[in-house]
Design a binder for these strands. Structure first.
Length: 423
RNA sequence: GGAGAGAUGUCUGAGCUGGUUGAAGGAGCACGCCUGGAAAGCGUGUGUGCGCGAAAGCGUACCAAGGGUUCGAAUCCCUUUCUCUCCGCCA
């Protein structure tokens, strides 16, 4: 959520910056609601001031033994008027908040301008894509042929865009999860959390999935709960409504969770394999940072994601997303893209974002400025570290052999019970 | 699922027979005194949001959330959420 005071002060500039995003944004409604709201507040607070003043006098009148009936009659009328105004204020408040909830974060001023992923800026590359001297297979064929992935039965059990891991495939997935968590906790200083996989509406609103993107989420109607689309939601909302000790910053959490997405609007895209499913596993990293440190934290967060691919020795590149491609809540985002031989290009495997105070304002997550002792919003960051299904796909494809077997990356072998290859 | 108890500020903890209670006491924090330095001790200060204002400040709201009763609600009533205890069921 953007700061209404900032919007009020220079709406043109904010509107211009918002419109470097994909889509058109107007602050007209917000400004009108804000003005209406302040008008009502002026009136109703004056009435309340009078009500309070008279209320204070009543005990004194009673003590003197005076008749309060005329005062009561007058106050009853005032009370009714206040109630009416208050209702109007509440409705306006709600309308304003709702309008604000639909406005995305302001892109950071320094990120590259652009309309789509075609305009993203490559920041760096690591590793050389391997040259194969045989016809390569895509991971869904490799997995099916080795009987470690089973898409048909997953479709039978549930439906399209679900997958099942079997035997060494299931073990490889578990090894990857464990490997990532160990690295983030032991080497990168994150605290592991095992959060609920189901979250409530307030949490989804706090991180920005709701209200605008409700159709993307799996909804449990009876309880009004949602299957978590990313551990960013439970992790960031861990501190919703709290004031975090400044000395504890940055707070760094990592979690493994399954993630559930409706993938509404992506029909026909990445229909095969592990790239785009309704359910997938992900290890997530979330940070709460002091405002003046958050961009340094974004760099290290991205490095923490990269470290996984470096350890697995799989080539990747890092791109800075342009204004037209960054997500709703993000001010700046780096995508880590892994080399996927069957696609013949780099494919997103992690998205690392600084949301600045956008989520913190929605979710009311604050700290105390040590200088002034005043409360201020923290900055929140999140990044995948990494998407497990896509990592598994990248391992299969990059480590495939001419005979269709898979060599297991060195660093994963001890977590696979010493297994060196899958055949 | 049944019966009961509870939810107060950064934390802890009073108030809950309705009216100078934004809310006692304590802790913490900040500043000052004391000290060679620190601790202890003493003194002072210390909530948040919103509105108006250049500012000082003034006003207003907030005692889990929402509604109600009342001239007036942290205090009374209802609903919801959460926590705890007991019973039942259960991995």
């Amino acid at each position: 959520m953007l700061d209404i005071k900032q919007i009020r002060e220079n709406p043109e500039e904010i509107e211009a910056r918002l419109n470097t995003r994909n889509g058109e944004f107007s602050l007209k409604d917000v400004l009108a609601l804000d003005e209406k709201r302040r008008d009502i507040i002026g009136d109703v607070e004056q009435m309340k001031a009078k009500q309070n003043a008279v209320s204070k006098e009543i005990p004194k009148l009673k003590k003197k033994g005076k008749d309060c009936a005329p005062v009561f009659a007058e106050m009853k009328e005032l009370s009714a008027e206040i109630k009416e105004k208050d209702d109007e204020l509440k409705a306006t408040d709600e309308a304003l908040r709702n309008a604000l909830l639909y406005i995305p974060n302001l892109p950071n001023n320094d990120i590259c301008l652009g309309e789509s992923d075609a305009d993203n800026r490559e920041v760096r590359r690591w590793g050389e894509p391997r040259q194969f001297d045989f016809d390569i297979k895509a991971h869904w064929d490799l997995g099916t042929d080795l009987d470690i992935l089973d898409f048909e039965r997953a479709a039978k059990v549930t439906g399209a865009r679900f997958s099942a891991f079997k035997g060494a495939g299931a073990r490889l997935e578990r090894a990857l999860i464990n490997f990532m968590l160990l690295m983030h906790t032991n080497e990168h200083g994150y605290t592991e959390i095992s959060p609920p996989f189901i979250v409530n509406r307030a949490s989804m609103t706090g991180t920005g999935q709701l209200p605008k993107f409700e159709e993307d989420a799996f909804h449990l109607e009876k309880e009004d709960f949602f299957l978590t689309p990313t551990a960013e939601v439970p992790l960031t909302n861990f501190h919703r409504g709290e004031i975090i000790d400044y000395d504890d910053l940055p707070v760094k959490y990592t979690a493994y969770t399954p993630c559930f997405r409706e993938e509404a609007g992506s029909a026909g895209r990445d229909t095969r394999g592990l790239i785009r499913n309704h359910q997938f596993d992900k290890v997530e990293m979330v940070k709460f940072a002091a405002p003046d440190k958050s961009y340094d934290e974004l760099e290290s967060l991205t490095n923490d994601a990269e470290a996984i691919l470096q350890a697995l020795e799989i080539p990747y590149r890092v791109v800075e997303l342009c204004t037209g491609d960054i997500g709703f809540s993000a001010a700046k985002t780096y995508d880590v893209e892994v080399w996927m031989p069957s696609y013949g290009r780099y494919v997103e495997i992690s998205s690392c974002s600084n949301c600045e105070d956008y989520q913190a304002r929605r979710a009311n997550i604050r700290t105390r400025d040590p200088e002034t002792n005043k409360t201020m919003f923290v900055h929140t960051l999140n990044g995948s570290g990494l998407a497990v299904g896509r990592t598994l796909a990248a391992v299969l494809e990059n480590y495939q052999n001419a005979d269709g077997s898979i060599t297991i990356p060195q660093k994963l072998r001890h977590m696979m019970g010493g297994m060196e290859e899958i055949r």
